[in-house]
Write a protein that binds this DNA or RNA. Structure first.
Length: 239
DNA sequence: AATGAACCCAACCGCTTCTCC
DNA sequence: TGGAGAAGCGGTTGGGTTCAT
């Protein structure tokens, strides 16, 4: 038996909030506060919404101190810096950025900063760990690279699904999630015709470099890191 | 002008943590 | 101290918008 749902999903409205609902929630909270109980609030405020939904709407959108619009360079830098230190602790990161919510920061990271972070990381890696095979053809982008995982948690997730992603430096030709699923990892040529070489020692660099933290345990908690890294390396060294 | 792809972000889901009894 | 319920949190989804062809 699972846990009881937080609200009766049959009788609550879902989807985008209407201006009327926003006004009702705002008015109620301005007059009464949320009363220490989000679950009871929708009923008291006359809203057919789940308490969690009300909480989210208030915290992420209706609060008077919310800052909407572009992120400044300083905010970018702060997010980069904090993410490199603590990973995807969005609420902690958001708490350092007045007026920004965890959802805001998370969305901003996922849509803008992650790309940049991966490019930076990948460029660093490509200089030391990846060599193009001489057999690459003209339709291939000029520089191959491995897009590194941006955090231990995403690395764990990706590892669980076998999802280390290979990318080209040409953003328009991202290899469609060329999964390095151990032995089925596009042995030989990838769909873009690349041949890859990743030196064994560099696997450790790749995994323990910035952003990875202590990845061996996080990636493969059920097996020796060396063994798995060996497999991983084998899967990548196709010359 | 039409259409498909890519992007963006609000909202949802479900798991974890906290608080209270 | 343990259990139940509420809050908090991070990952994911889906729909609207913009861009490219």
């Amino acid at each position: 038996m699972g846990r009881a749902p937080c609200c009766d999903k049959e009788n609550v409205k879902r989807g985008p909030w209407s201006p009327e609902e926003d006004a009702a929630l705002k008015n109620y909270i301005h007059a009464n506060g949320f009363g220490g109980n989000w679950i009871a609030l929708p009923h008291k405020a006359g809203l057919k919404r789940c308490g969690k939904s009300c909480r989210l709407r208030w915290l992420n959108y209706l609060r008077p101190d919310i800052k909407h619009g572009y992120f400044s360079k300083e905010e970018d830098d702060m997010i980069f810096s904090l993410y490199s230190k603590i990973g995807s602790r969005w609420s902690v990161i958001a708490s350092k950025l007045p007026g920004r919510t965890d959802n805001d920061v998370k969305n901003y990271w996922n849509t803008k900063l992650k790309k940049r972070a991966m490019e930076i990381q990948a460029n660093d890696l490509s200089e030391t760990t990846i060599r193009r095979s001489p057999s690459t053809s003209s339709r291939q982008p000029s520089l191959a690279r491995v897009a590194a995982f941006s955090s231990v948690s995403s690395a764990s997730t990706a590892a669980a699904t076998g999802g280390q992603e290979l990318q080209s430096s040409d953003d328009s030709s991202t290899m469609a999630s060329s999964s390095l699923h151990h032995h089925q990892a596009h042995r030989g040529e990838s769909e873009y015709g690349f041949l890859w070489e990743l030196e064994f020692g560099s696997i450790f660099d790749l995994l323990s470099g910035s952003g990875f933290g202590d990845t061996s345990a996080a990636l493969w908690p059920d097996a020796s890191a060396e063994g798995k890294i060996g497999e991983f390396s084998q899967g990548l060294t196709y010359l």
